[in-house]
C-alpha cells in the first residue's frame, strides 16, 4: 500500500528468503542422508542398514563404552565443578573472572592438542595413565568443563545463593541440608542441561578416543565409514536424533521445572 508497509514487506521477504535458504542447506543433507540410509537393499527402501548397525556387536560394545565414559564424565565433572562454583559464589566472588578466563582455555587448547599433551605427560612412569580409561574421562571433563561451569554458574546466579544460605542458617539448617535441600533442588534445571550437553558431546567424541586408542563409539563410526556405504548414513541419522533428543530434553527440563515451581508457588 504505502511506502512504510512496502519497506516492512521487503524486510520480511528478505528474512523469509534467508531463513528458507538456511533451512534448505540444513535439512537437505539430513533428508538426503536419511533416504540414503534406507537404500541398504537394492531397489527398495528399507531399514536394513539400521538392522545391520544394531546387529553389529561392536556397535553395542562401543556404544556401551562411550555411555559409561559419559556417565563417568558427568559424575566427575559435576563432582569437581558444582562445589567449586558454589564456593566461588559464596566465599570468593573475586575468583569469578579467573574461572571465566579458564573456561576459555579449552578453546585455545582444542582436543587434538589436549590429546597430544596428555599422551606426552602420562605415557611413561611415574604417571603411566594412558592405559587407564581415567585419563580419557579426565580429558572429557576438561572438554566439557566450559559447558558445565556456565550452566551451573547461570543457575547459581539467578538464585541469590548468599541470601538463601543465610536465610537457611538463620532457620537452623546445617551445611548438609543447605546443599541437598536448598541449593541442589534449585539447580536442577542447570544440572540437567549440563548433563545432557555433556552426553551429547562425549557420546560421539572422536579425537581423544581415537588418539588415546579406546574402542569408543566415535572411532567405531569412523571405522565403519571406511568400509561400508549405507550403515554410516544410518549412524549419522541416529546420532543426529540423539543430539536433538538431548537438546530437547534440556528444553523440556528447563520448562518443566520452572512450570512446576510456578504452580507450587500458586498453592502457597
Amino acid at each position: 500500500m504505502d511506502k512504510m508497509n512496502s519497506e516492512k514487506m521487503i524486510r520480511k521477504s528478505f528474512s523469509w528468503f534467508w531463513l528458507i535458504a538456511g533451512l534448505l542447506y540444513f535439512f537437505l543433507p539430513l533428508l538426503a542422508t536419511f533416504l540414503f540410509s534406507l537404500k541398504g537393499k537394492k531397489g527398495v527402501l528399507s531399514f536394513v542398514a539400521y538392522q545391520h548397525v544394531f546387529a553389529d556387536p561392536n556397535f553395542l560394545n562401543t556404544f556401551r563404552f562411550s555411555l559409561q565414559m559419559s556417565v563417568c564424565t558427568v559424575l566427575a565433572g559435576l563432582g569437581i565443578i558444582v562445589p567449586t562454583a558454589i564456593w566461588i559464589h559464596l566465599r570468593v566472588p573475586k575468583a569469578k573472572p579467573v574461572i571465566e578466563f579458564f573456561t576459555l582455555l579449552p578453546f585455545v587448547i582444542p582436543p587434538i592438542i589436549l590429546a597430544f599433551g596428555l599422551i606426552r605427560c602420562y605415557a611413561k612412569p611415574p604417571f603411566a595413565l594412558t592405559t587407564s580409561p581415567a585419563l580419557l574421562v579426565a580429558g572429557y571433563v576438561v572438554i566439557s568443563f566450559p559447558y558445565i561451569y556456565r550452566a551451573v554458574d547461570a543457575g547459581l546466579s539467578v538464585m541469590d545463593l548468599q541470601m538463601l544460605t543465610e536465610a537457611a542458617q538463620s532457620l537452623g539448617a546445617g551445611w548438609g541440608s543447605i546443599l541437598f535441600r536448598i541449593i541442589l533442588p534449585n539447580l536442577r534445571t542447570a544440572l540437567l542441561s549440563a548433563i545432557f550437553l555433556t552426553f551429547a558431546t562425549v557420546i560421539g567424541e572422536l579425537t581423544l578416543a581415537v588418539l588415546l586408542a579406546w574402542p569408543a563409539f566415535g572411532p567405531y563410526m569412523a571405522f565403519v565409514g571406511r568400509d561400508l556405504a549405507y550403515e554410516p548414513a544410518a549412524l549419522a541419522i541416529l546420532s543426529f536424533a540423539m543430539t536433538w533428543g538431548a537438546i530437547m530434553l534440556i528444553q523440556i527440563a528447563s520448562r518443566g521445572v520452572s512450570g512446576s515451581r510456578f504452580s507450587s508457588g500458586d498453592i502457597h
Binding site: 537437505l28 543433507p29 539430513l30 538426503a32 542422508t33 540414503f36 540410509s37 560421539g204 567424541e205 572422536l206 566415535g218 563410526m221 569412523a222 565409514g225 554410516p232 548414513a233 549412524l235 549419522a236 546420532s239 543426529f240
Partner: peptide, 12 residues
C-alpha cells in the same frame, strides 16, 4: 565430527 562427515558423504 564423524556423523556430519557421513551426512555429507551420503549427500554429496
Amino acid at each position: 565430527g564423524v556423523p556430519l562427515a557421513f551426512a555429507f558423504i551420503s549427500t554429496l
